[in-house]
Design a protein around this nucleic acid. Structure first.
Lengths: 243, 243
DNA sequence: CGTATGCTTGAATCACGTCAACTGATGTGG
DNA sequence: CCACATCAGTTGACGTGATTCAAGCATACG
């Protein structure tokens, strides 16, 4: 088994107290290492366990009937449960897949149930985690609905920078962002070609550079201003510095 | 006091058993009647109660900093909790407002907490309700992101028809849909003018007619086909017929 | 009465999508 | 080793779906 990476107290896990986090990790079944692009679960599959992302990026995807149009409806970063909503719902309305190689801590629903029975407050914290997830969904809907391409991309990258902050070993003013331009388009409701042009504009404006899976932030204030970015929707835990 | 309309066992309440529903209603504090366009709560307001919509339509709105761009990110119909997510989150990331006159059953968070302690299964059902809400958010993001205007409107109206089904006294093949064209645009990410043109197209295609706050469905199969509609994301309760 | 609100339509504009071609990096098998 | 395929990125030309601006109409309301 030998979990190469154990769950770390980071990202959304910081909404739990340290004690609650340790109590949760005690219930973990195993850590799985999953290849890039692997589909973890598909729409309508019955699920009996939930997965905590320890390393790597994952996405949640909605595809239409024909299967030709696919959209990224959520991006999960280390410290996120990727399918905790399957605990109350049992089946999901979307697919879950790895963007890159991922390490996933497995929690059986039966074990989560037992844990919540002995710590009701932790149960409500887990509920709150799924509600922050929903807040992010609303923000995504707003972003796609109300913002133009340039603003969308700047806003999206501002969000990702904050959510990945703890996962990043800082390299100057850059952060890891392994989504391809096509995947960025799937997330922001834009064609690959247009994403490419917007990124050129942002680069030529000395705002940011996306290259080789890294975003180099040339002017953070500008990036967040261009993106009309307000991190409220992320419900940042108190002990994490934002902005 | 005299609640004109008491909570009815309808809509998303059907995910609860009849016994659970009665147990919930026992904990109700009061029923409030609220004027059209009233803002019930604003972003960041601390909340200590949640509201169950008994009659009327309500919306959840995100506005940007300037306040000039407002979007509808959720529509609530009778049988929906409009802000149950404030139970785990305490503050919301958006505003909640009435579209028309509404009747709202009030549940204090302290009472919900006590109820969930004595019926843990009901607690998980309430969690599930908020997760269906999140599923609808994902669908809205997909709709705005992946569909063109005609498809969006047809899809939106297909969704609303099903969600309002139990609330409707059937008048031929029509259902009540009191959103203005401007509000439809706020929900679907379209300008008022374009919503108007799309509605003209749908009318001239003998698909549906929106007039005087009612949608007359001329060809339901066509409406759902044009809208690429699949009701999976609504997680319809077993005892309700869909389609 | 006048004013506000919702609906409707036309004309001009533009943001973005589509199609197509080309580059460079990486990988693979003969 | 080279020939070839594949994939991410890039750019130009062109088309179009949707926005914006503007004007006009109908209804409701004080």
């Amino acid at each position: 088994m030998s979990p190469l990476v154990n769950p770390a107290y980071m990202g959304s896990m910081r909404h739990l107290t340290r004690v609650q986090f340790d109590r949760l990790v005690d219930r973990m079944s195993e850590v799985r290492v999953v290849d890039p692009r692997t589909v973890i679960s598909r729409q309508d599959n019955p699920l009996e366990e939930s997965l905590l992302l320890c390393k790597g990026l994952m996405g949640r995807y909605i595809t239409d009937q024909g299967g030709e149009r696919r959209r990224l409806v959520a991006l999960q970063v280390p410290g996120d449960f990727v399918d905790l909503h399957s605990f109350p719902l049992h089946r999901l309305d979307h697919d879950v897949a790895c963007v890159e190689e991922c390490h996933l801590a497995v929690f059986k629903h039966a074990d989560l149930l037992a844990l919540m029975e002995e710590d009701a407050d932790l149960g409500r914290k887990l509920w709150a985690l799924t509600m922050i997830d929903a807040s992010i969904h609303r923000h995504w809907a707003f972003r796609i609905s109300a913002m133009r391409a340039l603003e969308r991309i700047a806003n999206f990258l501002s969000e990702v920078e904050i959510r990945l902050a703890e996962d990043n070993t800082p390299v100057g003013d850059s952060f890891r962002m392994p989504l391809t331009q096509a995947e960025l388009g799937e997330a922001c409701g834009l064609s690959t070609v247009h994403v490419n042009r917007v990124l050129r504009d942002l680069r030529e404006d000395n705002c940011l550079i996306l290259r080789d899976g890294r975003v180099t932030v040339l002017d953070r204030a500008r990036m967040q201003r261009v993106g009309g970015f307000d991190p409220y929707f992320l419900y940042p835990p108190q002990n994490v510095v934002v902005g």
